[in-house]
Amino acid sequence: MRLSEFRRAVAEEFGPVHGPVLTRDQWLAELGGTVDEALAAGADPRDAWLALCREMSVPTERRHGRGLVDPR
């Protein structure tokens, strides 16, 4: 997953206003900080996306992100 795909998936799942606020402010134990902090530190966008999905209880069938290719 590219960073642009991550940002698009976040905006589509959580909304174009709430999504960026969530990645900036929501602390995730799994990442040891916020999503934006983890990405800035070099975390893989796919790992960050999946951690956010788990934390926010996104159903498994939507964790591939809307608008992205369904993983096999």
Rank of each mutant, 00 (worst) to 15 (best):
R54P: 01
G65P: 01
E55S: 13
Q26H: 07
V35E: 05
R72T: 11
A29R: 09
E12G: 04
R62F: 14
E55M: 05
P16G: 08
E5Y: 06
P20A: 04
P45A: 05
W27T: 10
S57W: 00
D36I: 01
H18K: 12
V69E: 15
D44S: 06
L28P: 02
A51E: 14
R46I: 01
L28Y: 06
S4M: 05
E5C: 10
A29Y: 00
A41M: 00
L39E: 01
R62G: 08
A51Q: 05
D25R: 13
R72P: 10
G15M: 06
W49L: 09
L52S: 09
R24I: 03
P20V: 04
E30Y: 05
G15E: 12
A9C: 03
T34F: 07
P71W: 10
R63D: 03
S57P: 00
V69L: 15
D70R: 07
G32Y: 02
D36K: 04
L39N: 03
G32H: 04
A48L: 06
D44Q: 10
A51H: 08
E5G: 12
L22N: 04
A48E: 04
D25S: 14
V17P: 01
A29M: 07
E5Q: 15
G19P: 05
G67Q: 09
A40F: 01
A40L: 11
D44V: 11
E55F: 01
R66C: 08
E13M: 13
A43V: 07
M56C: 13
P20H: 05
L31M: 07
G15D: 13
R63F: 08
V69D: 15
R54Q: 13
T23P: 00
W27V: 14
H18C: 13
Q26E: 12
G33W: 06
A41I: 00
V21C: 01
P71I: 02
P45V: 08
D47F: 00
S57A: 15
P45G: 07
L52M: 07
T34P: 03
A9P: 10
P71T: 06
A43M: 11
V35S: 07
L68A: 14
G19W: 07
D44Y: 02
H18Q: 14
G33I: 05
L28M: 10
L28H: 02
E13V: 04
V35P: 11
D25N: 15
